[in-house]
Design a binder for these strands. Structure first.
Lengths: 181, 181
DNA sequence: GTCTATACACCGATAGAC
DNA sequence: GTCTATCGGTGTATAGAC
């Protein structure tokens, strides 16, 4: 297994169990390596593994969600593409948001800055597209906030109810909600 | 400190650190008792403490959010009261939702049933008011889902961004969103 | 680069004095 | 009813053989 594959497996562990619940035993099993071997690749231990996961997830998010927003088409088309890819990014509601997970408990102190930055980038990128679509910047920012809130909210609800049907509906309605009126 | 006061303190620990992160050391400190003393009041240990917290929080939620919805006034007034009290219940975005916390990691297996039930009750109670307000039941249910999604989403965002201003806006707009069109 | 063995702290939980 | 002391287990992390 490549290092990147291992990090992708780690991501699932952190998302599922949280930072405290992501024990070295679980991470070791997910990577198919002994606990001691993990320290060869991540000398600073669990914290460095979480950093690698955060970097990896940010990279995926950049490709799937941010780049489509910065593409060439009409604003409406870009927003549609973003919404589709959000579905893929969160595996249609099966995955929790890593950022929201890392904003809890002890992890909050460790990852406060990058988590804030990631949300701010999403907010600003989406608001930028809405400004292009004709909204003034305050209204664009509110709508971008509302969209992110809907995504985060439906992820929580999907996890709590063990059901992804509401996720599908919310993602499908996201473009219309962003551009209506 | 009364048992109920201790349970309220426990709730803050579970909300802040999650089920795994809510260690007996932290719970003991929050209650102002030694670890061993906790077992006098909660013989089955941490799991029983979390059960007590869940029961306590459900009770608060019942009083603050559900009962106003089942009151006597017009639907619009009841929804307005619910929204106000949601602000109080979540301390205006400073608190995470205990249900969403208990739907993660190992706690998910332990508390799946009551968490699902609590969300279902909220959904059905709110949808009932919207039916009274004139929506057909499918539309009422969708709107109730959307409102709960907005609340959960803004709680995540508030926690991640360490800011409660968006929370205030979303709660304020909640009644209009539920009843518009 | 991966392993076994181990160190030491903290976990949840219990025994028993007071 | 609360405490100190302690248990067995697991947590993160390290040492050193191969």
């Amino acid at each position: 297994m490549s290092k990147e594959d291992a990090i992708a497996q780690f991501a699932q562990i952190f998302r599922t169990y949280g930072y405290e619940g992501a024990t070295l035993s679980r991470l070791s099993k997910a990577a198919g390596l002994g606990k001691a071997s993990l320290y060869h690749h991540f000398p600073r231990g669990k914290e460095e593994m979480a950093e690698a996961v955060l970097e990896y997830v940010n990279h995926c998010f950049q490709e799937l969600v941010l780049e489509p927003l910065q593409g060439k088409g009409k604003p409406a088309e870009r927003i549609h593409k973003m919404s589709q890819n959000i579905g893929e990014f969160y595996r249609f509601g099966q995955d929790s948001c890593l950022l929201s997970i890392l904003s809890m408990g002890d992890a909050k102190d460790l990852f406060n800055a990058p988590v804030k930055k990631a949300f701010a980038t999403w907010l600003n990128t989406l608001a930028g597209v809405l400004v292009e679509a004709g909204y003034d910047s305050a209204e664009a920012y509110r709508r971008a906030e509302d969209a992110i809130i809907q995504v985060q909210g439906v992820l929580v609800l999907s996890r709590s109810l063990d059901s992804t049907d509401t996720f599908e509906r919310v993602i499908q309605e996201l473009p219309d909600n962003l551009l209506k009126d």
